[in-house]
Structure formats: C-alpha cells, structure tokens
Amino acid sequence: MTIAALLPTDSFNVVVLAAVFVLIALGLHFTFGMLNVVNLVHGEFLLIGAYTAFQFQEWTGSVVVGMVLAPLVAAVLGVLMERGILRFLYERPLDSLLATFGLSVIIRQLVQVQYTANPRTVNDPIGGSFVALGLNIPWWRLVVVAATVALVFVVLGLLNRTGFGLYARATVRNPDLAETMGINVGVIRAALFAIGCGLAGLAGALLAPLNTLNPQFGLLFLVNSFLVVILGGQGSLRGLVAAGILLGGSLGILQFNISTVFAQIVVLVIAIVGVRLRPIVSEKLSVRRDRLRRAEALSGA
C-alpha cells in the first residue's frame, strides 16, 4: 500500500490551499510588507481582478482575456490610488489605515451598485480533472498552484536580481538616503504599489473560478493575507512563502477533520503562536548563521 492510498482523494486541496495563501499574500508583500502601508484595500484589488475576469466573460464569452487584463486594471487603479492619496500618508500609518479602509468600503459599494450583491460565477477556463497517485487533481487548481510557484520565483528574481529590485530594497529600507543617492523614491513607491495591486488583481482573477463572486469576495482573503505577511515577517518573501504553506496547509488538513469555522480558529491560533515564537526562532537561526560564518572565516584563514 502506498502513502497516497492512505490519503483522501481530495488531498490535493491541501496543496491548493497552501498555494492560495501564498498567492493572496504576494501582493500584500509589496504594499504592506515593503511599503509599510496597512493596506486594508488589498482585498478589494482581488475583488477588482475577479470582477474584471467576470466582466470580460460577459462581454466576450471567454474568461481568459479578463484574466490577462485583470492585473493591468488593478495595477493602474493602484497607481492612481497611490499617487492620488497614499503617497501623502507614508509617514502617517494611522491615516493610511483609515484611508485604505475608506477606499475598501467605497470600492465594495461601487461593485455592489454595478453588479448587485447577487452571486456571480466565473467559468473554469479549462475544466475537468485527472487522477494521479490516487488523488483527484482538477486542472484549474493545478494551474493555480503552478502560477503561484511561478509568481514566487518571478517576484524573487525581480527583487533580488534586477536593478529595480535593488533600488526598491534600498528605498524601503532608507528612503531619505535613497533619494539623496539619486533614486526617485516616488516612482519606486508607485511602481511597488502598482505591482502589489497587480498581483492582487491576478490572484483574484485566478481564484474567481474556484469561488462564487459577490462584493464581499475580497474580505474572504484579507485577514488571511495579513496573517501570512505578519507571520512570515514583514518584508520577508521567503518567510511569506513559509507562512503561507504553514497556514494554508494547516487549514487544508484541518478541514478534513473539523468544520471550516473551527479550522480557521485553529489557524488563527497557529498564527498567533507563530508570531510569538518567530523572534526566538529568528534569533537562533541568526546565531547559527553567525557561527557558520565565523567557522568559514577561520577555516579560510
């Protein structure tokens, strides 16, 4: 008997949920993790992405065009929001929290006015599933997992291997010094906000076929996005991925045994305990890294 045979046939959902937790938090890594804006409008950018996919499905009969355009629509709206409002509030975190809360309510209400509160559905662009290792794997869910993995590597590459990434890291760590060293901090911040909103829009479009759409769609993901970014360590992409896998994976496993509501409560407890323990773990890892570095230096000498 293989291990796979012991698992429920829908065990792949554990992987999917882990990927979804990472996917919904990727955009927040830019707006909250890097730019330090307590971005309560993040969920509404998922909403914008999802409804962009829905709207294009209505217009063209195909959801794919909408999915491609969703991140662009969200990014453009994100830039307008950042340049119009949030750029004045970087040094005023409480005001930015209030502003993003207000914007989230406005966007939600506008969506409700336009599309009503009735549930909407976005078609699965591929449909169907296949069986592998005894597990039932829906094609679209596999696409969501693959897209998440690809996006993580793209974001890692963007931030660590490009000139833009270097300027962005410098900007978020010391904006005054960055500005006086020739970096246009305003442009970098706007670009980071646009990328964050674009990623949220893309996440919303990718997740739309897996959920019923309504104006509350973004709220479903907002709290979990913040949990992932905070548990992973604000500004740490690797931490975000680890936290997303931990929380999403835990939720997926727990849902086999207990109700979704209790599973979410347990996930919250895991997040709280994790946040409490993270400094201790970080300290131990840091000490270990220093020891290794010293040992390497001694062996080199």
């Binding site: 890291r169 410098a170 010391n174 005054d176 006086t180 020739g182 901090v185």
Partner: peptide
C-alpha cells in the same frame, strides 16, 4: 528640486551618521 534630481545634477551628500541600507 527633489534629492534624486539634485544628485543627478552633480551635487552629492556624504551624511554624518554614515547611513547605510540595512541588508544591502
């Protein structure tokens, strides 16, 4: 002018507190 434009125009600043970017 803003700092980045002043820098590009040829005036650079070496700050007293020896500021650096953490992690870079």
């Amino acid at each position: 002018w803003k700092g980045h434009r002043i820098n590009a125009a040829g005036m650079v600043w070496v700050p007293q507190e020896s500021s650096v970017f953490p992690g870079l």
